[in-house]
Design a protein around this nucleic acid. Structure first.
Lengths: 248, 248
DNA sequence: GACTAAATGACACTGGGTGCCAAAGCAATG
DNA sequence: CATTGCTTTGGCACCCAGTGTCATTTAGTC
C-alpha cells in the first residue's frame, strides 16, 4: 500500500483526486526551484489541488516524493536479473542487469538527473535513500542466493547486494554533475573497477579518471537492445582493458 | 558543534548538567527496551534530569543518539589510515585500517552490538546512518586520493570509500545477530570476498558461509597490537586462501 | 560583591505525520 | 429516480521533532 500501482481497473466509489506522478512532478519542481526544506507539504498539496491529509495518503513521507513509484522500479530490476542466462558468471550478470536497469530514454535523461541530484544532495533525502534501496539490495541478494544456492540473508548474497549498490551510487554521484556523460558507462566502469580493486595503482586510476571525464556518449558504450546481447559475457573486463581501449 | 568533544578544560560559566555519553546511554537503554518510536525526547530528557530543549543542544536529532560522538570515531579512522605504511597496497591498507577501527574492547562488545543492532534495524536510524557515514566514507576517499594522487571527489576514491563502507555494513549485519563471533573476522572476510568477487562459485561461497558461522573468536583472527604488524601485507588474501585455511 | 562567561530552562512556534469521522462522489441495483 | 454500497476525500484534533528567543542560573574572576 505504500507504493500504489495506480490500479487502472477500479471504477467504484469516489474517484481519485490526483496521482502519484502528478504529486511527484509538482513536488520535484518545487524542490529544485525553492529547495527541499523551503517547501512544505501544504504547498505541494495546494499546488495539486488536494488537501494536506490526502497527500499523506499517496506518499507516506515528504521524502518519498522524488522516488515516485520505486516499488515498480525494483520489480523492473528483478525482471532484468531474471533475463540473465545461467551461463553468464554471477558478477557479470549483476553488472549487466544493473546497467540495463539504469538505462533511461534520452528525452528523460535531464529529469532523471534532476531527481537523482535531489536525492543524493539533500540530507533528508540522502537519508531516505538508504531505506528505499533496502528492497533494491534485497533483489540483488536474492538473485545471488539463487545462483549460489545460499540463504538470501547470508553473508555473500548480502555483500553482493551491498557492493552492487555501491557501484551504482558512486556512478550516480559522478554522473549527476556531468552533463554529456553516459550513466551506463559510469556504472559499468564502477563494476569493472571493483572487480579489479586490488590492482589499483597510480597510473591505472588516473587514466581511468581521465577516460571517464572525456568520454562522450558514444555507440560502443551502449548495448543494443535490452539484455538479449551481452557485451560482457566473460566477466573478465578489467581496468586494464578499459584503459587499453582508451590508450590505443 | 554538532559533535561536541566534551572539552575537558572549560571552567567558566554554568556547569553542564549532563554529557553526551549519559544521554546516549539512557537513550539506547530506553530504545532497546521500549522501541525507538515509543520513546520521546521528552522521556529521555526527563530520565537524564534535563529539559527537552537542552537535549537538543547535545544532539541535533533524536536519531543521532545511538551514534554517540561519532565525529571522534571518524577521526580515529583517519588516524588508523595515517598509520599505514606506504609500501602496503592500497586496498590492503584500507582493509587493515577498517578492521582495526572496528576493534572494540571485549567488555564493550555487547553494548556495541546493541548499538549497531539498533542503528541497522530501526528504519529512522537506518536512514540516519547514511548521513552519518558520509564523513566516514570521505576519510577513506581522501586516503585513497592521496595514495593515488587524485581528487578526493573523483570516481575511484569515492568508489573505494563506498565499497569499504559496503564491506563494513555487510559484516555488521552478519555479526549483530550472532553472538560468539568476531566482528574483525567478518570485516576482513568481506574485504577478501570483494576483491575476489568475480571468482564467486557455488562451492567457494558456501564454504565461506560455513566458515564464518562456525568460527569462534580465536587468537589467529586478531592482530596483536594496533597497526604495527600486518597480517595481510600482500593484499592477496583471497577467498580460496580463507577456505584453504578452513578445509585443512 | 560586582562582573563575565557559559549553560540551562521556559515558552512559543513551525512542520511532519496520524487517527478519526463525516461528507463527497460514482456505480449498480431496485 | 431514489436507494444502497463502496471508496476516497477533507477537516479537525492531536502528538512529536526541532528551532528561535530570552530570561535565569551557576560558576570563576577581579
Amino acid at each position: 500500500m505504500t507504493e500504489n500501482h495506480e490500479t487502472p481497473d477500479r471504477a467504484l466509489g469516489r474517484p481519485r483526486a490526483t496521482t502519484h506522478d502528478v504529486l511527484a512532478e509538482i513536488g520535484v519542481e518545487l524542490f529544485t526551484r525553492l529547495g527541499y526544506e523551503n517547501v512544505s507539504v501544504q504547498q505541494i498539496a495546494e499546488a495539486a489541488g488536494v488537501s494536506r491529509r490526502t497527500f499523506f495518503r499517496y506518499f507516506p513521507t515528504k521524502a518519498d516524493l522524488p522516488w515516485g513509484d520505486f516499488g515498480r522500479e525494483v520489480e523492473r530490476l528483478r525482471g532484468e536479473l531474471a533475463l540473465m542466462p545461467d551461463d553468464i558468471p554471477l558478477m557479470a550478470a549483476v553488472r549487466q542487469a544493473v546497467v540495463d536497469f539504469n538505462r533511461v530514454p534520452p528525452d528523460a535523461v535531464d529529469q532523471h538527473r534532476a531527481r537523482l541530484g535531489l536525492i543524493l544532495t539533500e540530507p533528508e533525502l540522502i537519508a531516505r535513500s538508504l531505506v528505499k534501496f533496502l528492497d533494491w539490495r534485497r533483489v540483488i541478494a536474492e538473485f545471488t542466493a539463487r545462483r549460489l544456492d545460499l540463504d538470501p540473508t547470508s553473508f555473500v548474497p548480502e555483500l553482493v547486494g551491498e557492493v552492487a549498490l555501491s557501484a551504482a551510487v558512486a556512478a550516480y554521484r559522478q554522473w549527476i554533475p556531468s552533463p554529456d556523460t553516459d550513466l551506463s558507462t559510469f556504472i559499468d566502469t564502477a563494476f569493472a573497477a571493483i572487480v579489479d580493486l586490488d590492482r589499483l595503482e597510480q597510473g591505472v586510476a588516473a587514466q581511468l579518471t581521465a577516460h571517464l571525464s572525456t568520454t562522450p556518449v558514444h555507440a560502443s558504450a551502449r548495448t543494443p537492445a535490452h539484455g538479449q546481447q551481452h557485451r560482457i559475457t566473460t566477466g573478465t573486463a578489467t581496468l586494464h582493458e578499459e584503459n587499453a581501449d582508451e590508450t590505443r
